[in-house]
């Protein structure tokens, strides 16, 4: 490494107008000599102000030095010169991710990927950001559910409120392996609720009030707290169906209050 730096320093000294400062700056950065790296890049930028790679390198050195605001400015300058500069896009995505701005991070990384689909670091970063986004979304949904069914037994795994089109409004539903199955089951339950309405109408039974299913390993209780929402309660088989019904009635009241508050 030291030999490389010596050799690159000699090259730059021999031709100060060349782009050798980029390699030297990168080598100094890799060696952890951040002050020297900054000096080399800033000197190079005096001659190559319009070089987007130089601004990208400058930004990366600044990040390593902990100067995040200045790094963001440097990457901004790189993008102003080359709007699809992969390094700058990755850098700004990283900063957005650090600030919790998942949408901006995804936007930057997707642009970077469209520019260079073969860059494995972009692919990996995109995957990591998507996973974090999904995790945050699940957390937000869990919090929303806790708001609707706060204090209810099983609110974090067996109480779900959805709209008539099968979109989750709140609550949570997990299978025995603790996987989140809320969205998938919501779609099926909304379809079943429509089918129950159709059956009740065609058989002249009037409006239906509840739909209770006993399965091998548990119960489902479906009801309509309001005309445009569906409540699903899931409980394990050991819980008596009558108790599930009582819980469903209390949860339906909480759901009605919540729906009314949203209007």
């Amino acid at each position: 490494m030291a030999d490389d730096i010596r050799s690159l320093t000699a090259n730059l000294a021999h031709d100060p107008d060349s782009l050798a400062f980029l390699q030297l700056g990168e080598a100094l950065r890799s060696a952890g000599r951040l002050d020297a790296a900054v000096r080399v890049v800033q000197t190079g930028l005096e001659r190559h102000r319009g070089n987007a790679d130089a601004h990208d390198l400058h930004a990366r050195i600044l990040v390593d030095a902990g100067n995040i605001a200045a790094a963001a400015d440097a990457w901004g300058r790189a993008l102003a010169l080359a709007p699809r500069h992969v390094g700058a896009l990755k850098g700004l995505a990283f900063l957005a991710f650090q600030e919790g701005d998942i949408d901006t991070a995804l936007d930057r990384l997707e642009t970077a990927l469209s520019e260079d689909p073969s860059d494995p670091s972009v692919v990996q970063a995109l995957q990591a950001v998507r996973e974090e986004g999904a995790r945050l979304e699940a957390e937000i949904r869990l919090r929303a559910g806790a708001d609707i069914f706060a204090g209810f037994e099983g609110a974090d795994h067996g109480l779900l409120l959805l709209n008539e089109r099968g979109l989750v409004l709140g609550g949570a539903l997990r299978d025995p392996a603790d996987d989140d199955v809320a969205e998938e089951v919501a779609g099926y339950v909304a379809g079943a609720a429509r089918e129950a309405t159709r059956a009740a109408r065609l058989l002249e039974l009037g409006d239906w009030r509840s739909l209770v299913v006993e399965a091998a390993d548990g119960h489902l209780h479906v009801s309509l707290p309001t005309p445009d929402t569906v409540l699903l309660v899931k409980r394990e088989r050991a819980v008596p169906p009558g108790r599930v019904g009582l819980l469903a009635r209390r949860a339906a009241t909480a759901a009605r209050v919540w729906v009314e508050a949203q209007r």
Binding site: D175, Y188, G206, W208, R209, V212, A216, L220, E236
Partner: peptide
């Protein structure tokens, strides 16, 4: 339709079903 919901919920196939309506 309910069989899809019970299977995805991890509680198996429906055994007994009760649709309670107004009339």
């Amino acid at each position: 339709r309910l069989a899809r919901a019970t299977a995805t919920s991890g509680i198996g196939q429906p055994g007994f079903l009760h649709l309670e309506a107004e009339r």
